[in-house]
Simulated assay, not measured.
Amino acid sequence: MRLTLDYQGAYDWPAMLDFLAARAIDGLEVVRSGSYARSFCLHGLQGTFVISQAPGHGLAVELAYADSAALPQIVARLRRMFDLDADLPAIHRHLATDPLLAPLIARSPGLRVPGTWDGLELAMRAVLGQQISVAAAIRLAGKLVAQYGAPLVGSEPWLPGLRQVFPEAQVLASADLATLGMPRSRGRTLSGVAQALLENPGLFEAREHLPASVAPLLALWGVGDWTAQYIALRQMREADAFPPGDVGLLKALAALEGQPVSAQYLLARAESWRPYRGYAAQVLWTSLSRGD
């Protein structure tokens, strides 16, 4: 099945692909030739999709999934994952009033906040990434998928490299994930998050405001503010979610300021970015990766 998903404003597709490529889990995702492909499981059925930029203001999707009744839900997930519903021109006009952000936005007017296909998957990634590098976290995620993910059945021949789907919550909740090569406390957190989702299916859904959205996450053992804010930004699409203690944000702002900065300074500096601090964070993260 072929779809085209529209969006407003510009779209920095290379930046989106760079972000996804750096975090692609072996066997689950493939980024190549200007496209992103992945496997998934929804309502007990496996599927795959590949997405790329289409002419004009749209993204082209090639979807393989047996239940057409789930199409609206799949489209909603894709729109969230690729940040297609943001009023990016308005967001960037607001952020560009900051003289430090203005030139970065001018160089990449289509920079969007990457989302995620699934809240549990993002939470697992976020917990795995606590206090280690992105590359190390993705290696652990690859082990998790290889050991606990179900094999992908009947993958399309034009999607080589997709072999498994992400593990289900019930599998992760009962697994001893510390055997993957991480601190036992982190394995406990991963299993605890999966169990919390089984008990509260709305765990990763946005609520009436940001503090209410992150409160159920912060109540979980081993989940701190950085993890909760990261999940709120990429899964719940909370535009003002912001982790002020993030090392990448501190490095990026320090490079722009020309001097070291503290988390307290970053938090105060970010007040003028409300209600779009999450988009400002993406601008800063991208400036660091691109060497701006």
Rank of each mutant, 00 (worst) to 15 (best):
109 P>Y: 12
15 A>C: 03
68 S>M: 13
111 L>I: 11
285 W>C: 01
37 A>Q: 10
189 T>V: 02
246 D>C: 15
227 T>C: 13
44 G>D: 09
258 G>S: 08
25 I>A: 12
195 Q>V: 01
250 L>F: 05
259 Q>W: 05
168 E>V: 03
178 A>M: 03
20 L>S: 04
60 A>T: 05
18 D>W: 12
236 M>D: 05
132 I>W: 10
161 G>S: 04
275 P>Y: 10
8 Q>I: 06
82 F>S: 07
212 A>R: 08
237 R>I: 03
49 F>P: 01
183 P>Y: 12
29 E>Y: 09
142 G>C: 11
238 E>Y: 13
59 L>P: 12
158 W>A: 12
26 D>E: 14
173 A>F: 09
118 D>C: 13
250 L>I: 12
233 L>C: 06
59 L>A: 14
180 L>H: 01
66 A>H: 14
150 A>T: 10
108 S>Y: 12
228 A>V: 01
140 L>W: 02
75 V>T: 15
188 R>I: 01
71 L>I: 14
88 L>N: 00
158 W>C: 14
52 S>D: 14
94 H>V: 02
52 S>I: 08
228 A>I: 00
217 L>N: 08
273 W>P: 05
133 S>P: 09
278 G>F: 05
281 A>F: 03
109 P>H: 15
172 L>N: 02
162 L>I: 02
117 W>Y: 14
252 A>C: 05
22 A>D: 05
211 P>S: 01
52 S>P: 06
239 A>D: 13
227 T>G: 10
233 L>N: 15
40 F>D: 04
203 L>G: 08
282 Q>N: 15
275 P>C: 09
88 L>E: 04
209 H>V: 01
122 L>T: 01
192 G>W: 00
287 S>D: 08
176 D>Y: 04
80 R>W: 07
97 T>S: 11
213 S>E: 09
218 L>Y: 08
64 A>W: 11
7 Y>Q: 08
186 R>A: 13
283 V>G: 00
118 D>R: 06
48 T>P: 03
35 S>P: 05
129 G>Y: 10
60 A>N: 07
214 V>S: 03
8 Q>E: 12
98 D>I: 02
206 A>F: 07
13 W>E: 04
128 L>I: 01
205 E>R: 11
124 M>T: 11
222 G>C: 15
23 R>I: 14
39 S>L: 00
189 T>N: 04
63 L>W: 03
88 L>K: 00
97 T>D: 12
153 V>E: 14
132 I>H: 11
133 S>L: 08
219 A>K: 12
276 Y>D: 06
49 F>K: 09
291 G>N: 09
200 N>C: 04
6 D>P: 00
152 L>R: 13
12 D>E: 15
179 T>Q: 15
61 V>Q: 11
